[in-house]
Write a protein that binds this DNA or RNA. Structure first.
Length: 264
DNA sequence: ATGGCTGGTAGAACCAGA
């Protein structure tokens, strides 16, 4: 009997400020597993009760005060594998779990990298590059079927941004970041599920700035969020989409969720 | 300029997001 699993990922930009839309998403889409990034809450005040009422009884939390923070909510059993510090400064940006079928699910929030794409004047950009280098070392040693998802904060392809020309020197789309993300992908032969279902150069965005007067009309999006899988899992993904309407809900996150359906 | 918002925490003429 195949096991169907619907796995979602969403940079929520504060889980407490988004309780209404997270519960709406869980009710309407009913994913088996939801990976959250930027929860912005410490574990002992995470609003887990409201998600348990919706059947998400398995919750792995890795938060910190104020910024960052990741969490995995699940209807099916998950066991924590590790919480890796790829930034080597203690920030809560990763948690990995194992499913009962042995597959690993890795939820990551890669740092944004600040404003200037130059590590000599912007340490945050250097941290982002170092984070990716450590992920590359990790990925090269992976020996189990793995799903890697989250906010990668990099839009690698020209069609992953609204204007390649205008963003090529903007952090998230610079050649040095794109190059490193390519090395990360090659380190495990990751399959990019987004582009498997929507091949380039189709429009595919997951993030739209809060600053636009009308995010939908201007549509200056970027594909910063990703769902990657080990090569042997690529054919197990049966459906995938960006839940773009969530960007237009009340008090939205600036990211839209990714939803992937698997049949294992 | 593309264009000027958002949340958390502290009580900011802040910080971080990207």
């Amino acid at each position: 009997m195949p096991q169907n699993l619907k796995i979602a990922s969403w940079n929520i930009n504060s889980v407490r400020a988004r309780l209404d839309i997270v519960t709406r998403f869980l009710t309407e889409e009913a994913p088996d597993i939801l990976c959250l990034q930027e929860t912005k809450v410490v574990d002992n005040t995470f609003p887990g009760g409201i998600f348990r009422q919706l059947g998400y009884n398995h919750q792995i939390l890795h938060g910190q005060p104020m910024h960052h923070g990741v969490a995995i909510l699940s209807k099916v059993p998950i066991r924590e594998d590790d919480r890796l510090d790829w930034q080597a400064n203690g920030e809560a940006r990763h948690v990995g779990v194992r499913l009962d079928n042995g597959i690993r699910l890795e939820n990551v929030y890669i740092p944004a990298g600040g404003e200037e794409p130059d590590r000599t004047i912007n340490p945050k950009f250097g941290q982002k590059l170092d984070f990716l280098e450590r992920m590359i070392d990790w990925a090269a040693k992976l020996d189990k079927p793995t799903i890697l998802t989250g906010d990668f904060n990099i839009a690698p392809l020209e069609s992953d941004v609204w204007s390649h020309k205008q963003l090529v020197n903007v952090v998230s789309h610079t050649p040095v970041e794109v190059d490193l993300l390519g090395r990360l992908q090659a380190a495990h032969n990751w399959v990019d599920i987004g582009r498997k279902f929507y091949p380039a150069p189709q429009r595919l965005y997951t993030w739209w700035s809060y600053r636009a007067r009308d995010w939908q009309a201007s549509d200056r999006g970027r594909r910063l969020d990703h769902m990657w899988v080990s090569p042997e899992l690529a054919d197990k993904a049966t459906a995938h989409r960006v839940a773009e309407p969530c960007r237009g809900w009340m008090r939205p996150s600036d990211h839209a969720p990714l939803i992937t359906e698997f049949s294992f």
